[in-house]
Design a protein around this nucleic acid. Structure first.
Lengths: 209, 209
DNA sequence: TTCTTTGAACTGACTGGTCAGTGCAAAAGT
DNA sequence: ACTTTTGCACTGACCAGTCAGTTCAAAGAA
């Protein structure tokens, strides 16, 4: 059922080639942007002939779209897993949000290039892969919104919060803090960054009495 | 001896042309990205011949760099003004942060395309204007960091907060929430969005007892 | 006032290079 | 047998940047 539209019966070899191409493309596009990255570069970095790129993907844009789907799929699964894990442990929704923040940080730590590329493309309009992007964004944000809704329902979160906006704000908080971490203070530990964001989430910014 | 990059003695006419080029470039690049936007497009949208672009700017990249400097200059001024205004009114640092959040929203409301373009480029490496971007980013973030530092000094904010990370997280919160607002729920009012972010800043997310 | 000069500002056709995508025969892998 | 990859030559569109020539407002000359 799963597996994307254009991956009907990928042999193991083919799948390995695709993976190499994803990895090559993601770093190059993160650094330079989609248009500034050439297919020749991608092929070279992947250690593959140019013809192979076109044997495996219909076009440069399609390669990129599938890359987006693939990456956001990983992120969504990771967020969902974090939310469900804390739920299973019978902890509150704020803990679930905190766990999702951590999951987000772990993801960005592992795939910084993908994150960068995703942010760079997310608010662009007029591009070929725009509809793909919308779908894929909704998948990820929906997980956060879901937890917020549940929190409001159980009374753990204020009824007055604006779910979509708060979800976006939380995602932004994690995204930007993490990208800053990776770009400008890579020596910091994940725990460090997580602690700072937890504090913000739980309103422990003001000084104690 | 060209007139150097920083526009020392631009005539009124020249300045008007530059302004038109900025406006044309900012929307096109926000929509399509830098590399996907052609100089011909920029010239056409500005109602100017291609040669004029090169008469006014040394290259496409230089046009873009000056655009970045120009835009971030406006933002920084606006943030600083908000911080100083609340300080003058003798209010606390949390109020100053809140005022800066609003100033950020007002800016994004007025210049959504610039914001979009800025976010898309901010974490890219290996690009010509990278050093410009670093400088310009630091200017803006420094204003937020300054207020956080003052808040810690006066005891109004916890000593345990991590100033650079918290500043980045706050910026991210505003940036992403605002871009989402503009892209996906443009019917919302600024006050609405501001209220949601205020709540998050002040830890009023958990339900009341 | 009316004419002339000056140079900054602007124009757009043109050039040289780049790049996505193609085609295909031979090789390698399964 | 068949799928997949290779290597490489080729094309056609597209695009950053150039440059010889044009416009025009304003300063000065008559």
């Amino acid at each position: 059922m799963e597996s994307s539209s254009t991956t009907p019966g990928g042999s193991a070899r083919r799948e390995a080639t695709r993976q190499k191409l994803y990895e090559a493309a993601v770093t190059l596009i993160a650094e330079q942007g989609f248009s500034a990255t050439t297919v020749d570069e991608i092929a070279e970095r992947a250690g593959v002939a140019k013809g192979t790129v076109y044997y495996n993907f219909a076009s440069k844009s399609v390669l990129f779209e599938e890359l987006l789907r693939h990456g956001v799929g990983l992120l969504t699964a990771s967020l969902r897993e974090a939310a469900e894990r804390t739920a299973g442990e019978g902890r509150g929704k704020v803990d679930a949000l905190d766990a999702m923040i951590r999951a987000g940080l772990v993801f960005i730590d592992r795939y910084p290039a993908f994150t960068q590329l995703y942010v760079a493309e997310l608010w662009r309009t007029n591009r070929a892969w725009n509809s793909t992007l919308l779908v894929v964004r909704q998948q990820a944000v929906a997980v956060v919104e879901g937890v917020l809704h549940e929190g409001v329902a159980t009374g753990e979160l204020s009824e007055e919060i604006d779910v979509p906006l708060t979800a976006a704000a939380l995602v932004g908080m994690v995204l930007v803090a993490a990208l800053d971490w990776k770009s400008f203070q890579p020596e910091r530990t994940l725990d460090d960054v997580h602690a700072a964001l937890s504090r913000l989430l739980q309103g422990r910014v003001s000084g104690r009495p």
